[in-house]
């Protein structure tokens, strides 16, 4: 089955950080996201802990990942393709099925597990 993942996850894709620096997607590090969010006027990084990973009811190609998001520990579930990569703090790209991710995108990838802390975005508080 063809992947419908966005093109920027394909190995070699050029990503622009908030300070203008260009990096390949496979070379991104935790610090790149943190520093970009610090520069951003609107976005801030949240820590989203994986609480549960289940197969989707609707399609075998999808998984439902439940996160505990931010300091308020809001419960958020997202349905994603098994090969969809999340960025885990201090570890890098991780997906429910890293073999598929590597096969389809050539993106080096680890196995996403319960307890992993992923980088997510939220709006900066306007106060």
């Amino acid at each position: 089955a063809p992947s419908s993942l966005p093109p920027y996850f394909i190995k070699g894709s050029i990503i622009q950080l908030a300070d203008g620096e260009l990096k390949r997607v496979e070379d991104l590090r935790t610090e790149d996201f943190i520093q970009s969010a610090e520069i951003s006027s609107e976005l801030k990084i949240d820590s989203s802990t994986v609480e549960r990973i289940e197969g989707s009811q609707t399609s075998a190609n999808f998984a439902v990942v439940q996160f505990s998001v931010g300091e308020h520990r809001s419960q958020v579930s997202v349905e994603v393709l098994l090969e969809y990569p999340f960025f885990v703090f201090g570890q890098g790209w991780s997906s429910c099925c890293p073999d598929r991710t590597t096969q389809l995108l050539e993106l080096p990838c680890s196995k996403l597990s319960v307890g992993d802390v992923c980088i997510s975005l939220t709006l900066k508080n306007l106060k």
Partner: peptide, 19 residues
Amino acid sequence: VPVFPWHSLVPFLEPSQSG
């Protein structure tokens, strides 16, 4: 060659939660 912004790569979670 297309260039993608860094914030496309990580999910936006916790919609409209504040305070």
